[in-house]
Design a protein around this nucleic acid. Structure first.
Lengths: 235, 235
DNA sequence: ACCTGAACACCGTTCAAGT
DNA sequence: ACCTGAACACCGTTCAAGT
């Protein structure tokens, strides 16, 4: 038989941690994180679920692993942006890195949730944040301020925020206006706010809130605040 | 038999949605969110797990419910802080409300995770944010800026942030110094940063990062930024 | 109206056994 | 060294049946 035929027939390529993690990312990308089960992961790889345990300690280990895969993907992209030319450029470079990280996150919508449940930073995430601290040091930050900056940014450093209020899910339409009207009694301020948003963007395809614009507004507000707090004199 | 004896013997108090949710909060408080299963919830209430489905649609409904319970608890506490005396006081009042919300969240460590997975705001959460928008309006915010402010704050409006980096878990000790030393090669900037933190707080009981201080620093940075963006002239 | 028993379709994980 | 079959202890949920 040819090599191709053999590959089609039996489980040719042996399993490995890397192969398991790649398959797990694929599964989560295509079906959401809740579709990632050990049994389906085995099936995806043409093996029994039990075989996975030879390459991976437990499901938590798989989740740690795919978080690291995404962080490594971010590092790949971010490594290509140049170093700041002048001290004051720390802000522009950081902004660019974070917005690139965000693009990676948008390709893996399950990733924010998984990051949120990890207890330790993966190696690739540590490297990403080490680089961020390095960038701030070049910008004249003390270690103390850089540390505070990481806390202020929180998950924003990786390009996402935890959204609590989600009217952005649906498009703006007549139904939305009816909802706003029904809120006017018990929730007058939200109703007023939404009415204005509905009015301003009568046929926006982005829904009620443009997440990208909001993300950038918040990011810039924070970066400007930090820029004011650093010693921003040129050396 | 006495009433007490009857209560001790059979399932006296009938189930109800409120009773189910209260038991669910108790279970999560005591054993963490992963200990909240329908079967254990039934047990806690002296009933079969299947009986819960008469009062609750499914487990997701329970999670929606306990998120609303926590939000209602926040409203109870926050309702007791007074209205701002002058326009410029919006910031102090908002700060106070958010720090009170944080105290409630600290009593329910599972709540951030549950809020993060809800798709809609519960009634109590809507009311909380309606009040927040009202407060900003009194402070001279346009609806547009109030809307952006909600996005910038994100989960911070409820008193928590998603922490990605967690060296604060353990206390500062010799082990910590060894870890820092081992990071010096691959992660020079994080090593430098942590070395300084370890040095500054040699026997802090709060661990490497004081989450409360970091939370307030970030909150103030954001509130100051928003204060600059609003029309802050007195009427 | 409210609760339950039995049952179903899933999980993650173990372990002795196979090649 | 790598993979599997059988089995265990759990899930959430449905539904006909009981009071």
């Amino acid at each position: 038989v040819t090599i191709e035929a053999e590959e089609a027939a039996g489980p040719r390529v042996p399993l490995s941690r890397a192969r398991v993690l790649r398959a797990a990312v694929k599964l989560a990308d295509e079906g959401g994180i809740e579709s990632l089960t050990m049994r389906r992961l085995g099936e995806e790889l043409g093996a029994e679920a039990m075989s996975l345990y030879y390459h991976v300690a437990k499901k938590e280990d798989v989740l740690d692993g795919i978080a690291d895969v995404v962080a490594a993907e971010i590092n790949d992209v971010v490594d290509r942006v140049g170093a700041p030319a002048r001290r004051a450029d720390w802000k522009a470079v950081m902004r660019q890195r974070i917005l690139l990280a965000r693009e990676v996150m948008l390709r893996h919508p399950w990733a924010p949730g998984v990051f949120g449940t990890r207890t330790d930073m993966s190696p690739a995430m540590l490297r990403y944040h080490d680089d961020l601290v390095g960038l701030m040091r070049e910008g004249g930050f003390s270690y103390d301020l850089a540390h505070r900056a990481l806390h202020v940014l929180g998950s924003r450093s990786l390009g996402f925020t935890q959204e609590l209020f989600n009217p952005g899910a649906g498009p703006v339409d007549e139904e939305a206006k009816a909802l706003v009207a029904s809120m006017a009694g018990p929730l007058p301020h939200l109703a007023g706010m939404l009415a204005e948003i509905v009015h301003d963007e009568p046929d926006s395809t982005l829904g009620w809130c443009d997440a990208q614009a909001e993300f950038e507004f918040g990011l810039d507000l924070i970066l400007d605040g930090l820029d004011g707090a650093r010693g921003n004199s040129e050396p």
